[in-house]
Amino acid sequence: MKKNFRPFTLKLGILLLLLLLWNCGLSFFHGWVTLWWLGLLVNFLLIVGIAELIGKMIPSFYAPLYRRSLAVSFPLLLFLAWELLVRGGVLSPDWFPPPTRIVQALWELITKFDEFSKTSLLGRPWLWPGALWGGRPETVGELLAESHLYATLMRVFVGFFLGAIPGILLGMVMGVSPTIRTMIDATLSAFYVLPKIAIFPIMMLIFPDPFGEGPKIAVVAISVFFLVTINTMVGVRDIEPVYLEAGRNYGARGVQLFYHVILPGALPVVFAGLRLALGTALIVIIAVEFVRAKTGVGFLTFYYWEILSPEKMYAGLVVVMVLGVLLTAGLKKVEQWFMPWRRP
């Protein structure tokens, strides 16, 4: 049966007309200067209504593509609104530089090498092939050390794996054994609520080189450990007893029961914990780099705040946000590989 799009088309036309009249009215009466927040709110509601109607008219075959386009177009609309508010004098360009200036600053951070600090956002990747084949005096390690992005990613990845692996193991044990869970749970909860950045001075006291990479990686690892442990324990503990009984009825015992029933049943919650832990790892390392680092995206962002270069400071924040999106997307791919039954 063919779907009747006439009511949707009429509503869509009305909403588009309202959107046009609202923005023209605000511009004509100079309402954007004083009521810009109301203008944005009404625009957002009208755009949501338009998107809803278009979504109902889109064929189901194109629905996934339409949802992805919404996810991309919304931040673009935010940047467009930001640009227009700055150009219109609503926001100060000194503290809220327009996105076009931020993009230019980001391009400078990527392409220009700071001869004073001997660093840049990406370092000098065009020299890596020569260093690999011995055609450069610098080694690959020395070239990587010039990159703020590499410094941050190295700390995140190393700390994440050092915290996630023991966290999964301890969480599995706590989930399986009520005795161990009762003994450790209260202590784990007490340490979990500590602000992770507050642990950093303790790590600086423990490690022989307080200004090296050890304390930074250790703080990330500790932050990841608690989140992964708690989520893994909950995932194992909350497996439906009927699944365990079904596994035993089919002869699964010990390792077989763990591998075929407990582990697959807990994986969704474990990966939820890993996603939270990965985001927390990035947040913690950026905060640590604000405080005590000479390289890293966090250091770069704080440095440009200190010298009052807001467009480059915002560019550093954009890099952090992009890192968060890419790391989460990568972990989702790993999750789909481990759990093929949950693939879309």
Rank of each mutant, 00 (worst) to 15 (best):
Y243D: 10
G254I: 10
E245R: 12
V270G: 01
Y250F: 15
L257P: 03
Y259C: 13
P268V: 06
R275A: 11
V269P: 05
E245F: 10
G265D: 08
F271W: 01
P264D: 01
T280D: 12
I262F: 11
G273M: 06
I262M: 14
Y250S: 10
G273R: 00
Y250V: 10
L267W: 06
A272K: 10
Q256F: 07
R248V: 11
P264H: 06
V255Y: 15
G273T: 04
L276I: 06
I262E: 12
V269H: 12
P268Y: 07
V261E: 03
V255Q: 14
A277C: 09
T280Q: 15
A266R: 03
Y243Q: 11
A272F: 03
L244E: 15
Y243I: 11
A277F: 00
L257Q: 09
R253L: 13
L276C: 06
A266E: 02
G254E: 09
G251L: 02
G265E: 09
L257F: 02
R253E: 12
A246V: 15
Y243H: 11
L274Y: 05
P264K: 02
A277D: 05
A246H: 05
L274V: 05
L257N: 00
L278D: 04
V242C: 09
P241E: 10
R248T: 11
Y259D: 11
L278N: 00
E245H: 11
V261G: 02
V261H: 01
R275M: 10
N249C: 14
L263I: 09
A266W: 03
V261R: 03
L257I: 02
L244N: 00
G247P: 07
L263E: 01
A272N: 13
A252L: 14
I262L: 15
L244F: 01
L267S: 03
V269F: 09
P241S: 02
G251D: 04
V255P: 09
G265M: 06
L257V: 02
L263A: 10
A266I: 03
L274G: 01
A252H: 10
G273P: 04
P264T: 07
V270E: 01
A266H: 04
H260P: 01
A272R: 09
F258L: 14
V242W: 09
V242T: 13
A252Y: 14
V261C: 02
R248I: 07
L267D: 03
R248E: 15
V242L: 14
V255G: 08
P268R: 07
P241V: 08
V270R: 00
R253H: 11
L267H: 01
V242K: 14
L263P: 05
A277T: 05
N249R: 09
G265T: 00
F271K: 08
G251M: 08
P268E: 04
G254D: 13
V255M: 15
R248P: 06
G265N: 03
I262N: 06
V261P: 07
H260L: 12
R248Y: 03
A252T: 10
F258G: 04
R248W: 02
I262D: 08
P264V: 04
G251A: 00
L257K: 06
P264Y: 08
G247R: 05
L267I: 00
G254L: 04
R248K: 12
R275E: 14
H260N: 11
G279K: 05
G279V: 04
E245N: 14
L276F: 02
I262C: 09
E245Y: 08
L244C: 05
